[in-house]
Design a protein around this nucleic acid. Structure first.
Lengths: 228, 228
DNA sequence: GGGTAGGCTGTGGTCCGACCACACGACGGA
DNA sequence: TCCGTCGTGTGGTCGGACCACAGCCTACCC
């Protein structure tokens, strides 16, 4: 058992027991080290891991916002895991695409049955109509749109995974834009497909929306010829 | 920009560029510190994060297996993220169950269309028939069974997520066993449901298998009355 | 008396140097 | 030829020190 794991187990146990809540603060690194009988570097390694896991946030200085604060940020760690494992080439891009299709088409089906509020989503589409958007700006809005769609289904885990998938592949998507025959034409098509998806949702046609989403995703990845 | 992030970016870049591969080794902590102009503690914090992300494994001593070697282990970090965020109570158990149903029923549908090799899965079921299994032993085999099912669909990302979900909730499932009216009777029912799922897969009935999987999961969670 | 500028204090961020435990591999003796 | 031993390089841990930062509190000045 390595020393820094003592801190991890301690924090997880206190979270599970309810003694640590979101917004609460960990004892100072020096105090924690003394409590557990380990050194401050060991504590710091553990805090780094917790930070990478999206469980704490650290800030220097003093005051209520300083120190090591408990947060709940599952998206950034998921994104980091996916990005790193994509980089190792042991996570095929095709599997990521397939997962996106599965999660997003499910979300569309689920969202349609909840007659959701589509105002925010439509506002995103309006912003994507603005002329002169760079591919990067367009895709950031596009990612927001897809994540918002996933959020409509009301499952925080699936929404978090979706957002992580989108963030993790953002760089790859941008790098593949030059593969497109005609970016402007592609953008026009993507906008139309988005409108179609929202229209199907508004009409309560979950099955139709799911099909459109799947076609939308598959279509783009085939056009961009993303690697593996 | 904190110093340890230099190491993270360096490693990710070298992975993406193919200069670091699975089985390869990072430079020693002292060497890495000198190369990047930072201290060894900073390097160690980064290595800890990479280890937590399932990208490297560290071992003391000398020889080919010692040092910091590149691995690809996406399951343990995903498990850790889920466990920690379940502990914060900001990830509802219901969402986890819903996600399991979605992923597993999809996997069953997909697997059925591939006429998979069911020998290994059946062997697991035989082991679960052994009398005198403790609830813990039973659920470990049960988890293996469900993960193996998900693996039949051939999507490494979904399989990894499934395995993480199972691992993350393992403790909660065990803790809920006393909630069951009659553990022995429950186990008999679970065994029968497993056999039914495998039979549907063997018959190529993906839709049927998907429905059985969904009912199987929902049934257990309702019987065990898992929290939120 | 009120307001402001300064220092005080406690936080994480970083670094250094040292020592330990470990395991392979080379060397030397039997 | 075999076996034990020592060397060497790895991560694991520690203590201590100093820095940057930000809120707070005091003391001074108006």
């Amino acid at each position: 058992m390595k020393n820094y794991e003592l801190v991890l187990h301690r924090v997880e146990a206190e979270l599970a027991a309810g003694r640590l809540r979101i917004g609460g603060r960990l004892p100072g690194e020096r105090a924690l080290a003394e409590q557990l009988g380990i050194s401050r570097p060991s504590v710091r390694e553990a805090v780094r891991v917790l930070e990478a896991m999206g469980v704490v946030r650290t800030a220097t200085g003093s005051g209520p916002d300083a120190g090591t604060v408990i947060v709940a940020e599952p998206v950034s760690p998921l994104t980091a895991v996916l990005r790193l494992h994509l980089a190792t080439n042991h996570l095929p891009m095709g599997d990521v695409v397939q997962t996106r299709v599965l999660l997003e088409s499910w979300a569309a089906r689920e969202a349609a049955s909840r007659s959701p509020e589509l105002g925010a989503v439509s506002a995103l589409l309006d912003r994507m109509d603005e002329p002169g958007l760079s591919p990067e700006e367009f895709h950031l809005l596009d990612a927001e749109f897809h994540v918002a769609l996933a959020g409509l289904a009301g499952n925080v885990l699936i929404a978090a995974v979706m957002e992580s998938l989108r963030s993790a592949i953002h760089g790859y998507v941008l790098a593949a834009v030059p593969n497109l025959a005609d970016w402007e034409a592609t953008a026009v098509g993507l906008r139309a497909e988005h409108r179609g998806i929202v229209a199907a949702l508004a009409a309560g046609d979950g099955e139709g929306a799911a099909g459109l989403v799947a076609a939308h995703i598959h279509g783009f990845y085939q056009a961009a010829r993303l690697p593996s």
